[in-house]
Design a binder for these strands. Structure first.
Lengths: 113, 113
DNA sequence: GGAAGGTGCAACCTCTTGGTTGCGTTTCGT
DNA sequence: ACGAAACGCAACCAAGAGGTTGCACCTTCC
């Protein structure tokens, strides 16, 4: 439980979050987990161009950022999305956008005076 | 003008966008440009721990992702925020979140039947 | 029990990244 | 005109990221 509620996300924890999102293969993994539901490693690497071990590494990165979670099921490891962290990144960007709009508003009212 | 309106942002162009956001120094630069308004390179590097050239590289990365823009003003180069790209990243995350909620909704209604 | 499927682990390689230093060039101020 | 400020460019370096191959280990299924 790294972040919850309405507490603003700090840049210190937002950076590794965005870094985990900053790879096309990982974004495709997220998209696949998102639309297709939980999947095993082999299931995820079946549609990908890179090897199974590369997929494992990417999943570890996503897991380290708290974006996905895994559980064992027999000889398979099933991965699924962790939507709370997506919201964290979401809120961080929203915070910057809001701050920028406020800055523009202040500038505008300053010019008008 | 890489993205505008309500067109969904593709993973192919979202990845380098998030990659540019995935560094703490760059996030701090954005935050400073956001709250403090347009600033020169030296002005930005004054509060940072790393060298001016490192700041220049980071600004180039942000510029390459379309997140900031610069203009010459005498012997200075002034950098300012480009809020449209922030919205792109914002909308991409919103799209994933929405898709995930829909998937959960489908799963729920399937289980209940 | 034995073969096949699904993972985990480790070594290795290459290219990128973030950072530095050094130096040359343009512009401002006096 | 001349020193100082702001910047651009290039070389260089260490560390990390992304990828691969090879092999061992545990389940599952017949």
């Amino acid at each position: 439980m790294a972040a919850r509620g309405l507490r603003p996300v700090a840049t210190q924890e937002a950076a590794p979050l965005f870094a985990a999102l900053g790879d096309e293969t990982r974004l495709q993994l997220l998209a696949r987990l998102c639309s297709g539901g939980p999947l095993s490693i082999t299931g995820l690497s079946r549609t990908s161009a890179v090897s199974r071990q590369a997929i494992t590494k990417h999943l570890d990165v996503l897991s380290g950022a708290g974006l996905v979670r895994s559980r064992r099921h027999g000889r398979e490891r099933i991965w699924e999305l962790e939507p709370a962290r997506l919201d964290d990144a979401h809120q961080y960007l929203a915070g910057i956008s809001r701050q920028w709009d406020e800055a523009l508003g202040r500038l505008k009212s300053f010019v008008e005076r």
